[in-house]
Computed example of a mutant assay.
Amino acid sequence: MKVNCIIVDDEPASRDLLKRYIADTDILNLVAECKNAIEANEVLKNESIHLMFLDINMPKVTGIQLLKSLTIPPKVIFSTAYAEYAIDGFELDAVDYLLKPFPFERFLKAVNKYLDIAEKETPVENRTILLKSEKKLYRIPILDIDFIEAIGDYVKVVFREQTITVHSTFQDLLEQISYPSFIRIHRSFAISINNFEYIDGNQIIVKGNTLPIGKAFRKGLMDKIEI
């Protein structure tokens, strides 16, 4: 299912950047780009919008004023050059807050936060995560991920007999996956307990891969398996 979104920003360069990022993210469908809150309000009246990329500091009507005026607002990812507005944004239950200028990876993290919120209302088997690797964007069902491994500033993701490498911190990717059956077993490994085969001493076999179990993580793993 496509996510209908709009851009609301008075700066042409910011709109162009978001348009490029949205075009590179297959799950997003850009319905309209708006130069101000008045244009955005008209679009919201006539279109079904799931997600709004909203600038805060706009003339006449700010992004925060627009959001407060909506009876049933879409989910919002704020984008602004002013960090001091972050608290106001989060008080309005914004999905995320992008501080300009932001790279594609940070944009993608925000979109994944939105997907996590939206997919909590969908069947478990349909939940997905977007990951970028070597200029390709993968949409991966979370239940298909066998394990992830920290490798310096990158994380190796193994799924459906495929392996990709993602530029991310280990903890950040764990938070994006955010799924009950996914558990850390070592300082450098986390697995889906749905896909492990057996435990042999301080090792666990996941789809034919032998992974170490860290002493500090063993009890949490065993408790999760017993549940």
Rank of each mutant, 00 (worst) to 15 (best):
K2F: 08
K2H: 12
D10I: 05
S14K: 00
D16A: 12
D16Q: 10
D26V: 04
L28R: 06
L30I: 08
K35H: 10
N36K: 04
N36D: 15
N46A: 08
N57V: 07
G63P: 02
S69M: 08
S69R: 02
P74K: 07
V76W: 14
I77Y: 02
F78P: 05
S79F: 09
A81M: 02
I87M: 13
L92F: 04
E105C: 02
R106C: 01
A110T: 00
L115F: 03
D116N: 14
A118M: 12
A118R: 14
E119I: 06
E121T: 12
L131I: 10
K132N: 07
R139L: 11
I142W: 01
E149P: 00
D153S: 14
V155C: 03
V157F: 06
R160Q: 13
Q162S: 14
L173T: 09
I177L: 06
Y179F: 14
I183G: 06
I183A: 06
I185D: 03
S188K: 12
A190D: 05
I191N: 08
N195K: 15
Y198I: 07
G201Q: 09
G201M: 02
N202L: 04
Q203K: 12
K207Y: 09
T210N: 07
I213G: 11
K215L: 15
K215S: 13
L221N: 02
K224Y: 01
K224S: 14
